[in-house]
Amino acid sequence: MPETVFSRPEALRDVTTHYCPGCTHGTIHRLIAEVIDELGVRERTVGVAPVGCSVLAYNYFETDFHEASHGRAPAVATGIKRARPDLVVFSYQGDGDLASIGMAEIIHCANRGEKVTVVFVNNAIYGMTGGQMAPTTMPGQVATTCPLGRDVDHAGHPIRIAELLSTLRTPAFVARASVHTPLLAVNAKEMLRRAFSLQIEGRCFSLVEVLSTCPTNWGIPPAEATRWLEKTMLPYYPLGVFKTPESGSREPRPLDRGVR
């Protein structure tokens, strides 16, 4: 008897996605779906899709969904969770959506400690609209709105969302993962499991930032895109857990020179 070693998670629908070859949205979708299945919460999970490449995410998960306007997914998720605390609510957002137009919503959602889970996909570029500079675009990285490469004197340095949100006292869990190798994907899944579990246990806000490649808009083949992510993004966006319910507030260090 052949043994089934690979099957589609129940929380993932049997449809073809629109994502480009080499894009990791599909992998991240699958990890989320597996976590939802394994936690046994599919029937009471509601997702919130953003505007961005994952605008059609509602077509890919076998759960109820809201399609939010650009950047407002954390506010929509807040509305859902406050209306129906029994539901498991997650938003799925990209870097333009979450870190640019939706910055106010994500910070305040995190700071209020909304009992929702946010999956933040960071591919350092705007995909949907055709490769413009994102708040997370790397210094020197070429995008259609920074054709000479991101000039940090002009556009500032890329925003590190996981670090930024982990300065808040409220959030229960903030972590950064990547899925470009099998081992890292396993870690990413574990972080997603922690994030969803903490929500289900009634702990507050959790966010997992997932680094992703965009071969189409980066204009390089998938394997090369993976190498670029490792070489360029990983040193700037370190992987790991930035905040847990146990970690306390950050104490300021004394000034190392000047008047004490």
Binding site: S69, A75, T78, I80, E105
Partner: peptide
């Protein structure tokens, strides 16, 4: 909410529920 922008989108989530 943090803004009217957010408040009205919270409405969206609650009404959709």
């Amino acid at each position: 909410a943090e803004s009217e922008v957010a408040a009205s989108n919270m409405l969206y989530g609650a009404a959709g529920s």
